[in-house]
Design a protein around this nucleic acid. Structure first.
Lengths: 169, 169
DNA sequence: GGAAATTACTTTAAGCTTAAAATAATTCAA
DNA sequence: TTGAATTATTTTAAGCTTAAAGTAATTTCC
């Protein structure tokens, strides 16, 4: 790796010339189209089949992997959404009986959120079907495609994170 | 292509066994993570740098490619968002002076939406910088990576669309 | 020509999402 | 140990988003 043809002014911030990056833009738009397309379909099926929204499903998915519960902050980081967003989401799922909150024993600011037995049962039923939908949506990719795509997306994720670092330090 | 190892019951709908598809699920989550990550960063920069939202930027991007304007329906299809969504988005951009609407000469139901000169100027300034951000975020991928990723995402898009067809016909 | 279907758009209600400000509890440090 | 900084969460205001229902114009087709 790292054999880019022209990384010349990667560091040379002096160069502010128009310098076109159409290809990267097209790549980004295609990535976005794929994820919007699939996300929309999953959202639609979750609603039609189980009358649940994608954010609620995602939240329950996180909690299903954490039998002892998680704090709102942990959830917020994992799900990459704001804290305030989570407050409302959890509220609604507590009201509907899927989740329960209890104040942390060691930190009175924090609360542990977890699935109720009913919530877990309902989630697992949905998750089983959901997994099938995803397999179906990606069905046109063979094993090698999937492996390659996985690797390239991992690389993309690292690339993006690195570029975002620059903002802070 | 099409050399999947075990496509045995692809057609055999009789098989309703648990049959796991963890790999596809992991692939989907990674794709989603990438796009969420990058989208979030772009959203943040657009706000910090230009005080504009991503949906507004996307809408202006569509119109910049259509000098004669587009109808709301066309925009809705292109952007993959609902009609109602667009009504509000356009309203706000007309109020801020970026867009103008005029009733279609041939169809009194429809209206052509287009960028005002000010809107276009502002968009192009933003777009130039935006292109640089994307190049930066994808900077860790070499030419071959980009080409491969592009191809695999195209294949993914086709795969998803085909799977979605099943819903209708 | 005129009823029925379709198409373009808007409105509504509900929920999602964010940034920023506020509250409260904990930790750090002089 | 106490004041300052940090951390966990909630609230607020604004905007985004959708599905569904409604309005109005056009097209279809008998």
């Amino acid at each position: 790796m790292d054999e880019q043809p022209i990384p010349l002014d990667a560091e040379t911030k002096a160069v502010e010339m128009p310098e076109h990056h159409r290809d990267e833009l097209r790549l980004w738009l295609r990535l976005l189209t794929c994820s919007t397309l699939i996300e929309g379909e999953v959202r639609r099926r979750l609603r039609d089949r189980f009358d649940v929204t994608l954010p609620r499903f995602d939240l329950m998915a996180q909690l299903d992997k954490a039998p002892d519960g998680m704090t709102l902050s942990d959830l917020s980081k994992r799900m990459m959404v704001s804290n305030g967003n989570l407050t409302g989401l959890v509220d609604r799922l507590v009201t509907s009986g899927h989740l329960e909150r209890r104040v942390s024993a060691t930190d009175r600011r924090a609360q542990m959120v977890s699935l109720t037995p009913a919530g877990q049962a309902e989630f697992r039923a949905m998750a089983a079907e959901h997994e099938g939908w995803i397999a179906e949506l990606f069905g046109g990719l063979n094993q090698k495609d999937q492996k390659d795509l996985m690797r390239l997306l991992a690389k993309t994720k690292i690339s993006a994170r690195r570029a975002m670092m620059g903002d802070i330090e």
